[in-house]
Design a protein around this nucleic acid. Structure first.
Lengths: 186, 186
DNA sequence: TTGCTAAGTGGCGGGGTCCTCCGTATCGTA
DNA sequence: TACGATACGGAGGACCCCGCCACTTAGCAA
């Protein structure tokens, strides 16, 4: 018994491809109806493969998220662990701020589904955990900071810069402030 | 010639009152149609008084914003200016995180209207400017931080904690991290 | 008090979205 | 080839935003 029929797989791929473009253009609020139309399928088919908008966004950003996670694992081996952590945060920030809808996908998570967290966030958080832990060991990071905090703060920053003419550099600037602290000595 | 007719003023007030409740309940995405229905007016009347959703949100949050601005002016006279700044940021954070839609209203600003900024933000930023300036003079704040940065960062934090069970405390926690810095020494 | 006029109103229709249901076409297999 | 499960997509309901436009009514003037 095939886990999935051939046409289903085909449609899945087409929808995903169209959704990537559409989300890149119109952000996280892209019209599902429009995606269905462009992909040449019925709107019900879109819903069948991606029950919620978030499921679709998750699939769209899966690769990028995965690559960021890989980057984190890589950097966890670095000599200068603080620099590595900052590198990762930078990458995370630029990605989130640049790619329309990514930040929203990271945050608009289980608002109504409190039991298990957003897979995007947890993937990143898990991947960043060793990096953060090593950084904490050498005191390169404030106590009490969790991996989820990092992802959350970055996503927040990215969201706020959506409307900015140059989101990436503005987001990076705000990240620097957050890393160094608004009012550090205290 | 009356600037506005009596019934118009009456409707304005009713709509605003209903909108406050509705936004408090359903956040920034509250249905304008529903507001009109509850207020017992046609949807066209809502649009007439508040051409855009943002205009309505702005009106809804005007008082709160104003009170936060007043607080900033007050605190600008304090002896311990750093503590005053942190106080204000705390208040700002709790407000934004608690009141459904306020953060969104602060951010979802002139996305399509780049020429003049969001009045909510500018009101707060202007009010916080003296406070921030005094803090900067005594070195209690990182260089390069603008009033708008403060409001932006706080709003970002508030947005990310919308879904959290206890937004206010979570937001406050994240604010503390941001104030102290994720990785301060560097 | 009684018009008059323009400001103000609200219902309606058009266009769009999301979502569900269900008859039908298609795939993979026997 | 024929059959059954799987997947499809169109229709339809509910909702929303938006603009238009004929009607009402407040408030001034005679």
């Amino acid at each position: 018994m095939p886990a999935q029929r051939a046409d289903a797989r085909r449609n899945y791929a087409r929808i995903l491809a169209v959704a990537e473009e559409e989300v890149a253009t119109h952000g996280a609020e892209a019209s599902l109806e429009q995606i269905a139309r462009t992909a040449g399928v019925g709107s019900a088919t879109v819903r069948r493969h991606f029950p919620t908008r978030h499921a679709l966004l998750e699939a769209v950003f899966r690769e990028r998220i995965e690559s960021l996670a890989a980057r984190a694992r890589e950097l966890a081996e670095a000599d200068d662990i603080r620099a590595a952590l900052l590198d990762w945060l930078d990458a995370l920030t630029v990605y989130s701020a640049t790619v329309q809808g990514l930040a929203a996908a990271l945050l608009r998570n289980g608002e109504l589904d409190p039991e298990h967290a957003n897979p995007c966030v947890s993937t990143l958080a898990e991947a960043g955990e060793p990096l953060l832990r090593r950084a904490a060991q050498v005191g390169a990071v404030a106590p009490g900071v969790t991996p989820v905090d990092l992802v959350t703060l970055v996503a927040g920053i990215a969201l706020t810069t959506q409307h900015h003419p140059d989101p990436a550099t503005e987001a990076t600037r705000l990240l620097r402030l957050t890393v160094a602290g608004i009012s550090p000595r205290g």
